[in-house]
Design a binder for these strands. Structure first.
Lengths: 155, 155
DNA sequence: TAAAGTCGACAACGTGGTTGTCGAAACAGT
DNA sequence: ACTGTTTCGACAACCACGTTGTCGACTTTA
């Protein structure tokens, strides 16, 4: 808080640019590995589904959006072959959404690519600075895991 | 890169959560200061307009979106009284978009709020850790200013 | 068994993007 | 001075992703 305060907009812009840069590189790399149609929102949705599967309502809850919005995303995911809907034998109202092998593959590849991108940051900054960056963010943003509440923040 | 690599998704999630947290707090505070209708995209658009004003095409270029998309955003901004369209006397094709006093006020307040939020991070982390966080991000993300290319990254 | 809650689906809509087209105006070259 | 090219803003149609509201079918609870 000295004479030359930073022009407030810089910190949020840097955080966004960092996030955006990772996401863009992820999808560029994902496209070359057989997943050209995966969009950022799909990755979050598939994370919310998880290996155990989930109902559309549950996905909506985990993502912080309405069940209708989650249902639409599941439609798109299903059309691309990343998930499938299975009738729940114990509850005729429910339909379990499950990742297909293709869906699982996209998640595995994403994790692998993110690890690689993080390694690039370690090359540029050093392991301790990256670790400290993560630690700082964990401190100021509690619960940064799922439910992540990411899609639709713009609308 | 030891045995227990971090699960790649954490770094991007932390960056997003940090950004999102600042943006959410900004708009909550902005709402209490007479700007309840400002949406995240509007702030970026008004930044792109700047105090000198700009044409819709230019705004689109600065934001990395089509001129049509920029024009639509300007429509919404104008309907809320944040900008006005002025005929350019030197070029009958152009219409200069200018911030109204209300638009300028929202920008001034935003900068002030962001400074306050950053000060909260400094309280939690210490000035040097925040400064190092910014410095690290500047290193891994060159050109984090405008043109910022933020809206529509999800679509 | 009746009431209340949850599930997925459907419809209508809002916002923030896209491409394509268009007439009007400016500009560049002959 | 005319002609072709570029740029401007506007309009239309469309897509992705979200919202509320409604609905019938099913489950759960009292």
């Amino acid at each position: 808080m000295a004479d030359n305060d930073p022009p407030g907009f810089e910190l949020p812009l840097l955080l966004f640019a960092g996030f955006r840069s990772l996401i863009d590189q992820l999808h560029a790399e994902l496209a070359t590995r057989g997943h050209p149609d995966v969009r950022p929102a799909y990755g979050f949705a598939m994370q919310a589904i998880g290996v155990l599967g989930a109902t559309a309502s549950e996905i909506g809850r985990r993502l912080g959006v309405s069940k209708q919005a989650a249902g639409k995303t599941v439609d798109r995911l299903a059309a691309l072959g990343y998930v499938e809907r299975v009738d729940d034998p114990h509850d005729a109202r429910r339909k379990l959404i499950r990742l297909t092998p293709r869906g699982i593959d996209s998640l595995v590849q994403s994790a692998e690519i993110f690890d690689r991108l993080r390694a690039r940051w370690v090359e540029a900054l050093g392991a301790d600075r990256v670790a400290q960056l993560e630690s700082s963010l964990r401190t100021v943003v509690p619960n940064a895991g799922f439910p992540v509440d990411v899609p639709g923040w713009f609308g």
